[in-house]
Design a protein around this nucleic acid. Structure first.
Lengths: 251, 251
DNA sequence: AACCATTGTCATAATTTTGTAACGCAAATG
DNA sequence: CATTTGCGTTACAAAATTATGACAATGGTT
């Protein structure tokens, strides 16, 4: 999985440096801004997973930015940790009230900061996930992270699960290996394109149970890549029912 | 078991937001009202398990609503926690006199609030604690805080008990280590994610008696976390019986 | 104070999953 | 047909992820 991206908005060069080092050691990607202005821009462009925001900043108070972030829907969910020099209760309270997800007072122990960052980050991924989709007798349950074929549970690795998840939500459409790598493996991951073939095979293998064989639901599009198509396996009757909901439905 | 439903009656948007986040992380359902009026309506319609009531509210004092709630039989039992900005003894006393079950002064630590909510919910029957749940031959008795496997009593530490309690109330669903930390250990607890592994192991160890071995009822979901699934241990016949009660029932 | 149970962390072992390379067949090309 | 190109398969070693055992800190008891 890709390293989480942390944006540090802090004007003091030395503190930024320390933070960058601590963050990178802990395995985070790190980008920096030294003022509200560029900080806001970076949030819009780089889409960080979390923001460390200094309380006092030139060109506008830090809490001002925080307020703006929590007001906009697009950034409302973005976790923000306030960095404050003062220990006064006032600041903390005000920060939390405006919507900071946590705050840390300088000087802070890097270890504690990292722990808090992790604590916040672990809440993020579970938001956009748990759906349930079905095509024919093939069911993908995002909650339990399982695949059912009829009554049986299919065993497969995480990558195959993600691949199937992507396919089942983008049916009847051909993707190149490159597209699959970008959208299933994630951008900026350098992996041989032919590796996709191997995972396609593993997925096909997994798509057969004792009684049913759905392996051909993933079709090869020669010269292009692969396509998930229910036409090849799902009987006509079921197909009609499913197609009405764009080949998948949730319950 | 369905998550307890908490109603937050509070006019300040930012505080509501913070509360919602804290509550949801702690595993509660959350609905909100920004004034006495709609708050009262929601209590009647949604039947929350507990109410967080701000002291000062537009359209009628918060304590006014509290008084009304405690007067009516239908809502007399409904636990209410007052939120007050002032630390003055007066308010607190007045609130408790009118029948608030607890009160918390702002600024409050989310952790403390959650703890108090749980403490209150424990008292109301059938909501949080005193339940008895069963999956196969595994029985969790909330009152005695004991676990039975068939005839035997299983020994385990508090954390393992809580973990099992959480799992048994949320079966057939995969959780990340982070989610487990948030919901079993509590929000705002900074613990290494790997620690979950260790407790899972301890729980699995505990889940075997002399005659029965239920350790595999906790499945590891590679790349994600863990899942409590009765499929692996409970015979089909029993499974049917249990599933009808959503895999758990209480007395 | 000594003891015991419980916890959170590490270090290390055990397993699974992943990415590649290699080989052979099948489908286009001409 | 002979070639070339693309894909399916298999086998492996590297990389990730989990399981496990040990240990020190903590907190409560006796």
């Amino acid at each position: 999985m890709k390293d989480p991206l942390i944006l540090v908005i802090e004007d003091e060069e030395s503190i930024r440096g320390m933070l960058r080092m601590a963050l990178e050691i802990a395995g985070f990607e790190c980008i920096e801004a030294d003022n509200i202005q560029s900080g806001h821009t970076m949030i819009a462009n780089k889409r960080p997973d979390l923001v460390l925001l200094d309380w006092m900043l030139p060109g506008g108070n830090g809490i001002e930015l925080l307020r703006r972030l929590k007001r906009e829907d697009s950034t409302k969910e973005l976790p923000v940790i306030m960095l404050t020099a003062k220990t006064t209760e006032d600041n903390m309270v005000q920060g939390l009230e405006v919507g900071a997800d946590d705050y840390v007072t300088k000087p802070f122990a890097p270890r504690e900061l990292i722990a808090r960052i992790k604590a916040l980050l672990r809440r993020s991924p579970g938001v956009l996930q748990d759906e349930r989709m079905q095509v024919g007798k093939l069911i993908l349950d995002g909650e339990s992270k399982r695949i059912f074929l009829g009554q049986e549970i299919l065993e497969m690795g995480p990558t195959e699960f993600n691949l199937l998840h992507f396919f089942i939500s983008h049916p009847e459409r051909a993707f190149t290996r490159g597209q699959l790598l970008d959208r299933v493996w994630g951008a900026n991951v350098y992996v041989e394109e032919r590796t996709v073939d191997v995972h396609i095979r593993r997925l096909r293998m997994a798509l057969q149970s004792a009684s049913l064989d759905y392996s051909s639901i993933i079709e090869t599009v020669r010269g292009t890549g692969y396509r998930f198509s229910s036409r090849s396996v799902v009987p006509a009757a079921e197909r009609f029912e499913a197609s009405g909901m764009h080949s998948a439905h949730w319950q």
